[in-house]
């Protein structure tokens, strides 16, 4: 067996740990395994990925997995923003944390869906899906049996230094996810891999300022739609709003603008949903919609 899995999620969801759960479970099941995370300097909520390679021979390959056999997506909103399916091989499997089947428009890919977030919120009280995603991946791809998966979750949660009751809760989450997701038959072909190649080019010399690392497009970060980070949305009740400017002042991301009448408007393309405005609004004129 040779299995390359790429996991995608958002910072804070536990994608690195999910990858480790899969790696450890595979190791316990007797395979060679390698797992590694990748993240940029971005913060909580940003795209994080993790890679697991499993093989019955010593693992070859390192780093980014460009052509995975399986992809796990812990936050389905990433489908629109991060191209998590890129390179997924024909006959491969995608495991999605979602309430229902997601239309991907790729007939050659099999899909396993499980609402891990709802389970995590129920059991752990927050969207910490690492144990659930790890267990779901192991089951869906037939990597390891239940006992190995539970042991892997226990080991990884202990490694994180979680309290006993949280470890237990994560094991419970893993058990429920393991039970709920079906095992799919991978139909990827190892030979495909050998055929993949890209053209190698030589970078030309470019004149200054193109050769200098600088940005001369002030404020262009608006192109980054951080609104997708949001899981709760502040909504202004204009009947109650007193135009006091408090929300405008405290919004860390300049996502609240004022018009001439000092009426605030929220930029939902960028609002990260921190809800400081909701908390600080003196007349409580901001509500939260989930």
């Amino acid at each position: 067996m040779k299995l390359n899995i790429r996991l995608h999620g958002r910072g804070g969801q536990g994608i690195k740990t999910a990858g480790r759960v899969v790696g450890t479970a595979a190791f316990l099941a007797g395979y060679y395994a390698q797992d590694s995370p990748m993240y940029g300097p971005e913060r909580r909520g940003a795209h994080v990925s993790s890679f697991v390679r499993i093989s019955d021979e010593p693992v070859d390959g390192r780093g980014y997995i460009a052509a995975p056999d399986a992809v796990a997506i812990a936050d389905h909103s990433l489908l629109e923003q991060a191209s998590p399916l890129q390179g997924l091989r024909s006959g491969g499997v995608v495991i999605i944390n979602a309430a229902k089947h997601v239309e991907l428009g790729i007939p050659t890919i099999q899909q396993a869906v499980l609402d891990i977030s709802t389970l995590a919120n129920k059991i752990l009280g927050r969207d910490a899906v690492s144990a659930g995603v790890g267990a779901a991946v192991c089951k869906a791809l037939g990597i390891a049996g239940r006992a190995d998966v539970i042991e892997a979750v226990k080991m990884e949660m202990e490694e994180l230094g979680l309290r006993e009751e949280l470890i237990e809760a994560n094991i419970k989450l893993a058990e429920e996810c393991y039970a709920a997701i079906p095992t799919l038959q991978l139909k990827t072909n190892e030979e495909d891999m050998l055929m993949e190649r890209d053209e190698i080019v030589e970078i030309p010399a470019t004149p200054a300022p193109a050769s200098v690392a600088l940005i001369s497009a002030a404020g262009n970060s608006t192109a980054r739609k951080t609104g997708a980070w949001r899981d709760a949305t502040p909504v202004i009740n204009y009947q109650k709003c007193t135009r006091c400017m408090v929300c405008y002042i405290y919004c860390p991301d300049s996502c609240i603008s004022l018009d001439e009448t000092l009426t605030p408007h929220i930029d939902y393309e960028h609002c990260k949903g921190c809800l400081i405005c909701f908390m600080e609004c003196p007349p409580r004129a901001i509500q939260v919609e989930v």
Partner: peptide, 28 residues
């Protein structure tokens, strides 16, 4: 003319490009 010099890079590709430009400039 606002200029943001020496931003942090997140990708190997752009990083490679700017590093290599230093090399090409040195050759030049």
């Amino acid at each position: 003319e606002t200029l943001a010099y020496a931003p942090t890079m997140t990708e190997g590709a752009s990083y490679t490009y700017f590093k290599y430009q230093i090399h090409l400039a040195a050759q030049e």
